[in-house]
Design a protein around this nucleic acid. Structure first.
Lengths: 232, 232
DNA sequence: ATAACGCTTCGGCTGCGGCCGAACTATTGG
DNA sequence: CCAATAGTTCGGCCGCAGCCGAAGCGTTAT
C-alpha cells in the first residue's frame, strides 16, 4: 500500500457521511458495538463492518472483541482532537438561518459535553477560564498550558488525581483543545481528563445514556461557584 | 443547501488527493495562483478551478483577484490547525517497516530543508528559538513576529539583507510557519527568506540538487554556535 | 487591434467506492 | 444439537464526483 498523500487518506476516511456519523458518536469517548454504530449511521451491519475495518486499519479506531460483540472506540485523543478541529471549521460557516445540523444547535450539547475524555462546552470553558484567571494555568507554547504551583495545590484540594495524570506515558499533560461551540480553547490532555473524572466521581456531572451530552448536577453548580468562583 | 453532516462535508473536501495537495502547498501561509496550485496537484487548470471554488464556498480558502491572476490562500489559522492535526494523525501511523511515505521518515529532510524560501526542520527551529530566546523576535498577532531593536542590530551584524526584506511588497515580514516535523512554528516571511539567503550566501548551508533537503556545512555549525548560541 | 494568457463554465465520459442481499463464521443459550 | 444473535466476506449494482476537451470571458502585453 503506497501512501500517495497521507492527509487526503485520513480526511477521506472522515469525509464519508456514514463514517463521520460513527465518529461523532464515538466522540463521547466510550466504546460502542458495531450494530450500535451501524444504527446510528443509518446503514446495514455489513456496510458498517467495512467502514469500521477501514478505520481500524488506518488507526483511527481501536477494536476489542468481547463475547459475540465487538466494541469500537477512538484510537487516541489525537483522533478526537482532529475531529474536534474539523467540526470547529464546519461551525464557522456563516450560513445564518440555514438548516445547520440539529445536533449543532442542541443547547444541552453546547452547554456541557464530553470531548473524548474531558469536559467541553460552556462548562468546559468556565472551568478552563477559572483556572487561567486564578493563575493556576499559564500558557506554554502554542498549544499547551503549564500547571503553576498554586494550580497544583488547587487540584490536590479538589481531589484531582494529579499523580495518575502525570504518569500518563507520552500523552500531553495540559493541552489546549479548540471548543467548537464556544470557539475558544478548553483544557484537555491528561489533566483535562483527570478534572473531568473528578466531576463525574464527585457527582458534579453525569453522562446521559446516549451521546456526548453531560448534565451538570446541582452540586456541580455549587462546586463551580464555591471552588472555581464562576458560574454558568 | 441542506447540511446533513457538517463534519463529513469539511473532511470530504480535504479528502480528495488533488485538493489535499493544494491545501498542503497553501500551508506555507502564502497565497498561490490557481495555475500554481493546479500544477502542484497534477491536474488541469479547469479541474483545479472547480476544486478551488468549492473550497472557497466552504470557507476553507480565501480568494483575491489581482490582474489576470487569482490568488488563493487558507481562509484562517483554524483551517491550518485542522490540516495540521490531520497530518499528525497520518504521521502517527505506527506501521514500523511499512511504506509510510519515504519523505516523511527521511532524517536529513527532518534535520534541515527549505520551506519554499526559508529554513525548516531542526535547523529552522533552532534559528527561530535562538532569535526568540535572545529577545530578537517578539510575538505579534497570532501568526507574526516583530523584529525588536536588538533583533535589527543582530541581523545587520549577521549580514542579513534587512532593507531588501522590508521593501518586499505585500509580503509578510516575519511570519510564523508551522513546521511539520518539529510541530512548532519557525520563522518565515520576507525575514525568514532573507535569513535563509544569508545561510546560503555565507556557505553555512547548501541545497541538495534534488528535493528540498538542505545540508548544514561545518562552518554553518560553527555559525550556529558562535552567532546564535545554539546547536543542533 | 490582435494575440497571448489566466481562469472559469459547460458537457460528457469514466471509475471508484458506498450500498445491499446472500452466504458464512463464531459465540451464546436452550 | 439446533436456533438465535453479532459480525464478516463476497459479488454485483449504481450513482456521484473527478477528470478533461472545448469554448468563453476578462486582463495584459505587443
Amino acid at each position: 500500500m503506497i501512501t500517495v498523500n497521507a492527509l487526503s487518506e485520513v480526511a477521506a476516511l472522515m469525509g464519508d457521511p456514514a463514517r463521520a456519523a460513527m465518529l461523532q458518536l464515538l466522540m463521547d469517548g466510550r466504546a460502542h458495538t458495531a450494530s450500535d454504530l451501524a444504527l446510528t449511521a443509518g446503514i446495514t451491519a455489513q456496510t458498517a463492518s467495512g467502514h469500521l475495518s477501514r478505520m481500524v486499519e488506518a488507526n483511527l479506531l481501536a477494536a476489542r472483541a468481547q463475547g459475540r460483540n465487538r466494541f469500537y472506540r477512538l484510537a487516541s485523543t489525537d483522533v478526537a482532537h482532529a475531529i474536534e478541529s474539523l467540526m470547529a471549521l464546519a461551525g464557522r460557516r456563516a450560513e445564518p438561518a440555514s438548516k445547520t445540523a440539529a445536533w449543532r444547535r442542541d443547547p444541552d450539547l453546547r452547554f456541557c459535553r464530553t470531548c473524548y475524555d474531558h469536559l467541553a462546552g460552556q462548562v468546559g470553558i468556565a472551568v478552563t477560564d477559572s483556572l487561567t484567571q486564578h493563575g493556576h494555568l499559564e500558557p506554554k507554547g502554542p498549544r499547551d498550558w503549564k500547571l503553576t504551583g498554586t494550580g497544583e495545590l488547587f487540584c490536590q484540594r479538589l481531589g484531582v488525581d494529579l499523580a495518575g495524570a502525570k504518569k500518563a506515558g507520552t500523552r500531553h499533560f495540559a493541552r489546549q483543545c479548540l471548543d467548537w461551540s464556544e470557539r475558544r480553547p478548553h483544557i484537555s490532555g491528561a489533566l483535562g481528563a483527570a478534572i473531568a473524572d473528578t466531576f463525574f466521581k464527585k457527582g458534579w456531572a453525569e453522562r446521559l445514556r446516549r451521546g456526548r451530552t453531560v448534565r451538570l448536577t446541582d452540586s456541580g453548580r455549587r462546586a463551580l461557584s464555591r471552588d472555581f468562583g464562576t458560574s454558568v
